[in-house]
Amino acid sequence: MAGHRIFATSFASIYPLYVTKVERKSHTRDEVDEVITWLTGYSDAGLREAIDTGIDLETFFAQAPAMNPNATLITGVICGHRVEEIEDPLMQRIRYMDKLVDEVARGKKMTSILRS
């Protein structure tokens, strides 16, 4: 999947979609921020900077301070693909983020979402 167009999509363009998705289900922006910071190691200030600068997803993940080692515990289907079977590491990280946001929207307990 090298060069997939999602890689060039700005984080700032998908972040509000995540927030809208969870808010429709009576959840909050803070919950979205919590799962993204857990996954990537970004601080709240780092997330805001990524949004303000408009970096693409490839750069967002390349500059992530510390991908959570428990991210490999994220399993399931997103967009018709099992996240644990996605071969491209960048695409897998993007789908991990999608999966976490989906779990927030579905009302799953945060301790379960964060694989604690």
Rank of each mutant, 00 (worst) to 15 (best):
V77G: 01
L57V: 11
T40R: 13
F60Q: 10
R48I: 09
I78P: 01
D44F: 10
R95I: 05
A66F: 10
C79W: 13
Q63H: 05
E49C: 00
P69S: 09
T37M: 15
I78C: 12
A71Y: 05
R48T: 12
P65R: 04
A50M: 09
R48Y: 03
G46Q: 14
N68Q: 13
L57G: 12
E87H: 04
T37I: 10
Q63D: 08
P89R: 05
A64K: 01
R95L: 14
A62F: 06
D56A: 10
I36R: 01
D56M: 03
W38K: 03
L47V: 10
P69L: 08
P69W: 01
A64S: 14
T59V: 12
F61P: 00
L73I: 00
I55K: 03
D88Y: 07
G46I: 02
N70Q: 12
M91Q: 12
D52A: 13
L39G: 10
I78G: 11
V77E: 15
T75V: 07
E84C: 01
H81T: 05
L73Q: 14
R82D: 13
V83D: 06
D56E: 11
T75E: 15
T40G: 08
N68M: 04
Q92G: 07
N70C: 01
L73D: 13
D44N: 12
L47P: 04
T75K: 15
R82E: 14
E85T: 12
L47E: 12
T75D: 12
I86T: 13
D44G: 09
T37W: 02
L57K: 11
T72D: 14
G54L: 09
D88V: 10
T59H: 11
P69R: 07
T59F: 05
